[in-house]
Design a protein around this nucleic acid. Structure first.
Lengths: 194, 194, 194, 194
DNA sequence: TATGAATGAGAGTTCATTCAT
DNA sequence: GATGAATGAACTCTCATTCAT
């Protein structure tokens, strides 16, 4: 379908530009140019700039959810899953820096309506992690705690460090190196049963 | 001093508006109106909108640094300091919601120059926490790890949860209630010596 | 083409306003109003106010170049060409006062970038005159001298007088009357071979 | 008198800045800073920015008039006076570039009131030259023509070339070199009796 | 006499969105 | 379906000038 092709190109262009420059600094003209489509065409597929942004984020979160699901289904022990999720985040940073930049930069949109939707996407991801934690708690693999709170805490733990690692200074290089191991250990100490 | 009065009113108005609506959604006219000064007066005290934003953030981080210093100087054990810092963050959320909103929303500004400065302020705060952690490690009160990485991880841990708690739904109320205890425990488990 | 229509109306409005009030005193809003278009439409056709100004000047210099070319191609003797060029300048003053005002008023714009471009347009016109002079020198019709210098000198000679003649006082009326003859004679005495 | 000292410093600062950047690009703050006085002090001595500009121009034209008077009083033949006036213009360009820039750039102010006054200053200078030409005509040293028209023509002749010579390219250097001789010759051919 | 804080209209420019073709 | 010309409110920032001290 031609339709899907154009929409996909718009989302890809939007992802790159939103990640590089942020939401406000990215104009519809720039997206149209980068996607090789007309402005009119964009409005044919998306109702507004907000909708493009949401489509981009949906795709990103969807990918992360799929990665998480894939890990879960391998039946590994909880500590191993946590280690791998942390590793995955750092691998994304190395291979698809834009993806991390995107989530780091467009964290909390300023328009109330958009913010609510972005936070809903984030909640969906957090809820999935919470579900995993909950099952681990019931199986005695993970210490009991408030699952959603713990999920957000883990997300924050990792994202704060990867966010800092986006800078291109000496510190960032250090964090990239020791981050995966240190964060996985830290997370596991926080989560393991007594 | 009359000078300080106007500048202070501008910073206060900016803080409230930036927190409520974010950086881009807050215009100079709105700040002027809210502060009860003319637009010209704003530019007499601040070179640009960016500078107002930075002044607001500097004030916020300064306050947090002072709180942290005050805690440290009491000579409490590390676990207690951590517990109190977490409590402080949640207390701020209850008493000065705007302060948490501000830091949550203006996490990573989109303009490169502004972003660099905001991140420098954040780094200053993180470095202070890292210094505290480092002393704790040398005294055997805290497990050895990369101090700055750990500082960012702790910040992220707390901020992700307080950020979620800003919403005014049922979940947010739950997080507000169990947050302080759960997060302090979680952090301590991650930090305590073997 | 509709395109050309709007752009042309913008240039015409700009020409009139720049001539009447000068570059700085003419705002984009005034141009939009005078052209009967929206401000947005202006920026659709021109990147900046400078660009409108340059388009206006390009049109003016283009017209003058065409007039000069047309004269040249008639194969008249040099003295006759000079007489007619001077006459043409005064005729423009009578028929299109705005054209003379424009060039007189926006002689040397204050912004370096704009000034460079305006002077390049002027140089193009001067260079054409210089080429004509050079051919005349080689044919022995015109006394040998530095061609470009002489071209600028002739331009200045005429423009200083037409500039003064823009005022609407008694002196201006005198200059309008005697100007064509006196200036043509003066120029020819300066240029004719020994 | 302190008064005169401050006013003089303001005029000097204004002259430099107006020449370098033009009228609009030069702000009152910049003049105050360059003159080492307060903005309030400027308004104590000058009613407006226009008045500073006029004071600057008055000083410039006054100097030129004095130079012209000094030349006249030496009782030289007309051709020699003309040669020396042209030389003087080029010498000014070499020694006080700013003076030539000033007159070249702020040629025709955009505010009607200011423009009228600037043109009046120019007319005063032209009228003096015209008076000299008139005496020369009566003495048979100079060919009969409209004196004021001829004065403006001579001014334009020289100023167009010196204006072009302000650029700092190869052509400008050429004009600086051959200008004095060529222009003086050209002017004399235009003026000398049959 | 001298200061510089304060004013606020107005500048050029941007940009998401619409809609006639 | 697809285009991109057109809109105009809103943006940040400048600046000559005033006036209380």
């Amino acid at each position: 379908m031609n339709t899907a092709v154009l929409a996909e190109r718009i989302v890809e262009a939007g992802k790159r530009l939103f990640a590089e420059q942020g939401f406000h600094a990215t104009g519809m003209r720039a997206i149209a140019r980068a996607a090789g489509v007309s402005i009119g065409a964009i409005y044919h597929y998306f109702a507004s700039k907000d909708e493009i942004f949401l489509a981009v984020l949906r795709q990103e979160y969807e990918r992360r959810l799929q990665e998480a699901r894939a890990l879960w289904e391998q039946g590994l022990p909880a500590s191993e899953i946590i280690r791998r999720v942390v590793e995955l985040h750092f691998a994304t940073l190395a291979g698809h820096k834009e993806s991390v930049q995107l989530l780091s930069r467009a964290w909390a949109p300023e328009t109330p309506a958009l913010r609510a939707q972005v936070q809903a996407l984030r909640e969906e991801y957090a809820a999935y992690i919470a579900k995993f934690l909950e099952e681990g708690m019931e199986a005695g693999q993970i210490r009991r705690s408030h699952p959603l709170l713990t999920a957000y805490a883990l997300l924050g733990l990792v994202e704060a460090v990867t966010g800092r690692a986006l800078a291109e200074d000496e510190v960032a290089r250090e964090l990239l190196e020791v981050g995966p191991t240190e964060l996985a250990d830290m997370a596991w100490r926080a989560l393991r049963p007594k």
